[in-house]
Write a protein that binds this DNA or RNA. Structure first.
Lengths: 157, 157
DNA sequence: TGATTTTAGTCCTAACACGTACTAATATAA
DNA sequence: TTATATTAGTACGTGTTAGGACTAAAATCA
């Protein structure tokens, strides 16, 4: 009966979890700070960036693409609609669905804000890692994600 | 005058940013879901885990250790205090400071919940990555974080 | 067809999360 | 000492965030 004989605080995987949280936080802090100077929140930016270069999509698709739950998305879309950056249009095929697309103003916002933000973030990444390191990091991150997704939907233990 | 000739959406570093966000989200979702079954929120768990095996610390120290801003921490501590898991005691050396420590009940909570949670998360990590992969991931994450911290406090432009 | 289940989106609640403003206390400077 | 600046923590406003309840519509089943 595998009893915990060792200090749980010494678990090897904690040596990844902490850096994952710290790195994510450091990146997102910079990310959000700059986005705010552009007059948007991170979630709002994500929505704009996702809708950019598309003909629009349903809330559900938008929710999956942005990793924002549908309940949260409603509020984010409300605020973007109030800013007249997006518009909601009931789907004609499925009357439960609603199509979200950028307004002309939203498109203009996207064209300006997206490149600006990418340009802002680029030097931080390029200064931190070489191309091969980025490739390796990407692979490892996706592999780790896999371990958590297999059971997100599937067997429970 | 380095003009943006390429589609910003093709920036190489986006190949890291997306996985970082996706992986963090996947891990944290699982993390938070289990913590909730233990009767705590993620932030509350972080505070308990940080205070465990210590003689307490100030709000500032706690804030830095948990990556929770001081403003948010006030509310988290309020709720933990209401649950009688932590207690606040004014510092005698610096009358601006407040010492936070676990109550007996908080200590008991820590002893039970912390190992339980570690034990829950372990198989996800162990199933996803080998020990060398974990070491490599850790190194790359910390290196990336470094690139964002150098300018967090330091030169501003 | 009618009954059941699933799905899409909204509304609601509790808890974060961040920045700003504020108060009290400490530190520094003149 | 007096004026100034910094620091610790709290209060507040806006905006997420997850989850669960709810409604309407669609899909599936009997």
């Amino acid at each position: 009966m595998s009893v915990q004989t060792q200090d749980p605080g010494d678990e090897p995987f904690l040596k990844i979890l902490r850096p994952l949280v710290e790195t994510y936080s450091a990146v997102m802090r910079k990310d959000a700070q700059h986005i705010r100077t552009l007059g948007l929140t991170s979630s709002q930016f994500d929505v704009i960036a996702t809708l950019g270069d598309t003909n629009g999509m349903t809330c559900k698709q938008l929710s999956e693409a942005t990793l924002v739950t549908k309940g949260t998305l409603t509020g984010v879309l409300d605020r973007l609609e109030k800013k007249r950056l997006i518009e909601r249009e009931p789907s004609r095929e499925d009357r439960r669905s609603i199509f979200i697309r950028l307004t002309a103003g939203g498109e203009a916002c996207f064209q300006q804000v997206f490149p600006d933000h990418i340009h802002y973030l680029k030097p931080f990444f390029d200064g931190a890692l070489t191309a091969p390191e980025m490739a390796a990091l990407r692979t490892l991150l996706l592999k780790l994600k896999q371990g958590f997704q297999d059971s997100t939907e599937g067997e429970k233990r």
